[in-house]
Amino acid sequence: MPMTTADTEPVLKVVDLSLSYLTRQGPLQAVQSVSFELGRGQSLGLVGESGCGKTSIANCLMRLLPDNGRLTSGQILLDGQDLVPLSEEEMRHFRWGQMAMVFQAAMNALDPVYRVGQQVVEAIEAHGVEVTTAGARERVARLFRMVGLDPQLMERYPHEFSGGMRQRAVIAMALACDPSVIIADEPTTALDVIVQDRLLRELKGVQRELSMSMIYISHDIGVVAEVTDRIGVMYAGRLVELGDTADVFGAPMHPYTAALMSSFPSISGEKHELETLPGEPPNLANPPAGCPFHPRCAYATEECREEFPAQVQRGSRWTACWHPLTDMAGVGQ
C-alpha cells in the first residue's frame, strides 16, 4: 500500500527542528530536534497525545508561531529552499501557494464577516492564481464541487454553515492555490463520527487525485492509519518513532506507540484490550532527564532515566528507544 518515494527528492525536509515558547515559568521546549521527510505525493501522519507539540510543528512549518514562540534551531526545506531565514514578506509567497493548511479549529478558521466564497477568492487573488475575479470565482465553484459543496453556498456566511460544511469549505480553501504540501491539523476532530469518516475518505481521495503531499495530524492513531502512508509518533515534543504506516502498525517498536495503539480500538477489527496509559505526559517547561517517557514506561531502566536514547534504525523506519520492542514480531527489515 505505501508508495515508495525513495527514488525522488522529498518535497519537504525538516531537519533538527526545535522550538520553545517563552512563558512566565520560563521557556517551554515544545518541539525538540524533530527531523522527517515528506516524499512527493506521499502522506505522513503525526500522532501523539494532546500537548505533545503537533500543532506547534504545523504552525512552525508555515512560520506562523505565536509571538512568544521561538524557533531555536533547524531547517525547513521546501523543494530544497530553506524557509527559516526568509523574511515575513518572502515567506508570504510560500504560504498557501506552496504549502497550505487545514486548520484544527475549522469552525473558527472562517472569518465571520465575509462570505465563504469571498474568503477563498481572496487567497486566489493574493497569489495571482487567477487574474480575473470571474476566473477566481469559477475556480472556487470547481473546488466547492470537488469537496462536495454546492457552489451556490459561496454566497453564504460561515454562520449559515454546519460544522461539516465549514470543514469542507476550509479544505476547499486549502486547495485553492494548488499547493504542493497540505498540512491538515486535526481537521475532523470537532466533527461527529459519521461526518468525520466521510470527510476523511474524501480528503484522501482529493489528495490522491491531485497527487499532493500531505501531513496529517491527529491524536487519534486509528484515523492517521486510515489516511497516511507513513507515520510519525510524537511524545513530549520529540519524534520517537517513524516508519511506514503498515510496518508501525504491524509491529510498533516504541513502547509509547504500542501503548497508543492499545488505547484505541484497532482498525483491523480485532479488539485489543483497552488498556489506558497510566500517568500524564511530562511538563515541557521542566521535562524529565533521559527518555521523557520513562516515568510511564514499563520497560524503563537506569539507562532510560539518564540519557536520551539513540536512534535505532531498521530499514525505512527508526525509533528512539533503549529497549525497542523488536521481539514482539519480526520487524520488517
Binding site: 506562523l64 508570504r92 498557501w96 493548511m101 478558521a109 472569518d111 481572496e122 493574493a126
Partner: peptide, 17 residues
C-alpha cells in the same frame, strides 16, 4: 488571537490586509 486571523496570515495575504 482568533483562528481566522491566523488563517488569513496562512493564506499569504499581505500583512496590511
Amino acid at each position: 488571537r482568533e483562528d481566522y486571523v491566523m488563517a488569513a496570515r496562512a493564506k499569504g495575504l499581505p500583512e496590511k490586509v
